[in-house]
């Protein structure tokens, strides 16, 4: 996974999410009226249509909701295998982040595993990866 990753184009909606790692924070958009987390981040609450939304830091831990071990090299420089997972974020009901579970054998990951965010900086982007909590 050392190869360069494709990065997001930063904009007003997503900047807090992709740069929160500079302060070690996983930031999710949240409606300040009904407290619903809004992911992907948008300037309106999908539950109550309030525009009173702002990014909030969450604990940065979560649980593996589902996963797959990717074996296919989708580009010549890609290092395989690696784990792609959807992580249910603690304290943010309904939010599932697609991510990689890193720093463990690929066959050691299972649904229900507790994980913690670990940011990987590339240029001005802090990519939220996750590692297992033992």
């Amino acid at each position: 996974m050392a190869a360069t990753r494709t990065l997001p184009k930063l904009d007003a909606d997503n900047r807090a999410f992709w740069t929160g790692g500079a302060e070690g924070q996983l930031r999710l958009m949240r409606c300040q009226d009904c407290k619903t987390f809004i992911h992907p981040p948008r300037p309106v609450c999908r539950k109550c249509l309030s525009e009173n939304v702002k990014p909030e830091a969450v604990a940065g831990t979560g649980v593996v909701y589902s996963y797959t071990i990717n074996y296919q090299k989708w580009s010549p420089t890609m290092e395989v295998p690696f784990v792609i997972a959807r992580v249910a974020i603690d304290g943010a009901p309904g939010v599932l982040l697609t991510t990689n579970i890193v720093d463990c054998p690929v066959d050691s990951v299972d649904i229900g595993d507790k994980v913690r965010v670990k940011f990987l900086q590339q240029d001005d982007v802090f990519i939220p990866l996750f590692e297992k909590i033992n």
Binding site: R5, T6, P8, K9, P40, T99, V125, I127
Partner: peptide, 16 residues
């Protein structure tokens, strides 16, 4: 760089 829904997958090599 990617935007839209691709940004939630491509940075994790979840391309396909």
């Amino acid at each position: 760089r990617v935007d839209g829904s691709s940004q939630w997958f491509a940075p994790f090599n979840a391309i396909s």
